[in-house]
Design a protein around this nucleic acid. Structure first.
Lengths: 111, 111
DNA sequence: CATACTCACCTAGAATGTCTAGTGAAGAGC
DNA sequence: GCTCTTCACTAGACATTCTAGGTGAGTATG
C-alpha cells in the first residue's frame, strides 16, 4: 500500500551496483549505500551487513582497493576505488545484467 | 567467445519464470524447462536440480497444484497448474521484477 | 531380447550472497 | 557528561541455485 515500498536485492546484483557507484570516483561505504539508494529512487536499500562483506569480496577479487581517509563529517573512513580490473568487471557485469534482464523480459512478455 | 553464452539465473527469478510459464495452461516439468529456455532465446537455462525444488516450493506455498498424467511422449508426468493464489503471486512478482529492473537501470544509467 | 538412449522425476549437499542483529569507536551537539 | 549519528565490522541465519548424482519406464536399434 505504501508508495515507499523497498524491495530486497536480487542476489548477484550488489557487486554490479557497487562497482557502478565507484565509477565516478572513490567513495566510502556510507556514501556508496546512500548513492545506490538515492539513484534508484529509494527502491533499492542496501544493508550494512550486505555492503561491507561485498566490499571485502570485491577487494579480494582485485576489483577495488581502498585508502584510509577522513569523511565529510570528520570521521575515519575507507575510501574505496575501482581498479582497472574492476572497471573491466563492471563492463562484463553490466553486459550480463542487460542480457539477463532482456531475456526475462522476453519470457514475461505476453505472447 | 561463444555466441551461445548462457547465464546463471539470478536468485529469486525462477519462481517468476515458472509461474509465468504456467500462465498459458498446465505443463509438466520438462516442458517448463524447455519453454523458459526457448522463450528466452537460449539465454536462460534451468537445471533440473533447480526446477524440481522450485516446483515443490511453489506447491507448498499454494501457488500451483499438479495432477498425474501422460506426456506427449507417452511417459508418466506431473502436470502443474497455476492456482488463483499463484496467479496473484505472478502479478506481484512481475511487478516487483519491473520495479527492481528499472531501479537498477536508473543506477546504471550514466548520469 | 539386449542394449542404449531419452524422457520425466527426484534428492543431498555445496556454493553463493543477502539479511538480521548485533558490536565498537569516535566526532558533534546539547 | 550524555546522547545521537556516522562509519566500520562480524557471526550466524536464511533462501535459492547448482553440481552431481540416482530411478524407472518407454522407444529404437541391431
Amino acid at each position: 500500500m505504501s508508495s515507499e515500498e523497498r524491495l530486497e536485492l536480487l542476489q548477484g546484483t550488489l557487486d554490479l551496483l557497487v562497482l557502478q557507484s565507484l565509477r565516478r570516483g572513490p567513495a566510502h561505504g556510507h556514501t556508496i549505500m546512500q548513492a545506490i539508494e538515492r539513484r534508484s529512487g529509494s527502491v533499492l536499500h542496501v544493508e550494512q551487513g550486505s555492503l561491507y562483506p561485498a566490499l571485502h569480496r570485491l577487494i579480494k577479487r582485485g576489483w577495488i582497493t581502498f585508502e584510509h581517509g577522513t569523511s565529510e563529517n570528520n570521521r575515519r573512513a575507507k575510501y574505496y576505488e575501482l581498479t582497472a580490473k574492476g572497471l573491466k568487471q563492471l563492463a562484463v557485469e553490466t553486459s550480463n545484467w542487460e542480457k539477463l534482464a532482456s531475456a526475462i523480459a522476453r519470457v514475461l512478455r505476453p505472447a
